[in-house]
Amino acid sequence: MSEVQPSSREHAPRDPSIGVAAIAPERDDLRENDWTQRLVLFLRVMAVISICKGLYHWAQITGFVGGEDDAFEYQSMAWQTATVYFAVIELVAAIGLWLATPWGAVVWLTTVVSMAVIELMFPAIYGGSLLVVSIEALLLAAYLALAWMAARERPP
């Protein structure tokens, strides 16, 4: 039997540019969509919150929350109108937010601004809580910051 001679290829030095590192994505490529992922996570959290808010408004309309004195029929027309508006628009926003669609963000932004305006300009409807306005403003600022950072990730 004859011995198998090693080929010259096995003894040649390896080219450092060829290998796993050359075909593996760089660390920057893996982190390319971090802000977009954070934005989608934020939108999903806002979707869950919008569902809760929408269901709460429907519970007010149907009488599942509050006593007989707080019944929907005994409230002012402005309160009834605002409650029905938010009962519908919050759930529509939740769907769009969960799907991370542009229209979902627009509808959600409409709910945020609407609630802030009602609290500030028409305090007789829901009580004019500055805490609610502050929370809505904080959520709006968080959305704008995340959207800005996500937009910067994507090339034009």
Rank of each mutant, 00 (worst) to 15 (best):
M115F: 11
R154W: 11
M77R: 14
E136P: 04
A87I: 03
V88K: 01
A137R: 06
A87S: 04
S50M: 00
Y143E: 05
A105M: 10
L138F: 13
R27I: 14
P13L: 09
V88M: 09
S76E: 01
I89K: 08
L140T: 11
N33W: 10
A93L: 02
V48M: 10
M115N: 12
T110F: 13
G63Q: 02
V92W: 10
F42Y: 07
R14G: 07
S50H: 01
P102A: 09
F122Q: 14
T81K: 06
V40D: 04
D29I: 12
L146W: 01
E119S: 07
Y74P: 00
D29F: 12
S7D: 12
M121D: 14
M1L: 13
T83G: 02
T101E: 09
Y126R: 11
D34W: 13
V88S: 07
L144F: 08
L109V: 08
I61A: 09
A78V: 07
V48Y: 08
A100F: 06
A141Q: 02
V84E: 09
A147D: 07
A82W: 09
V65P: 06
I61P: 05
G104T: 02
A12W: 08
L91Q: 00
R38I: 09
F42S: 02
L99A: 07
T36D: 11
I95Q: 02
D15T: 02
I118H: 05
L55D: 03
F42V: 02
M77P: 05
V48P: 01
T101H: 06
C52Q: 13
G54W: 00
E26S: 15
P16R: 06
L109E: 08
V48G: 13
P6A: 15
L139F: 11
L97H: 02
I95D: 00
R38K: 14
A150N: 06
A145F: 12
R27V: 15
F122C: 12
F42Q: 06
L140P: 09
E153A: 04
P13M: 05
S76F: 01
Q75R: 15
V113Q: 06
F86Q: 03
E10S: 15
I95R: 00
H11F: 15
L55G: 06
A93Q: 03
G127H: 00
Y85S: 10
Q80P: 05
W98A: 01
M149W: 12
I118F: 08
Q80E: 09
V107C: 06
I49G: 04
R14T: 11
A145D: 10
L55R: 00
E119C: 04
A82R: 04
A150E: 05
L97F: 01
L130T: 14
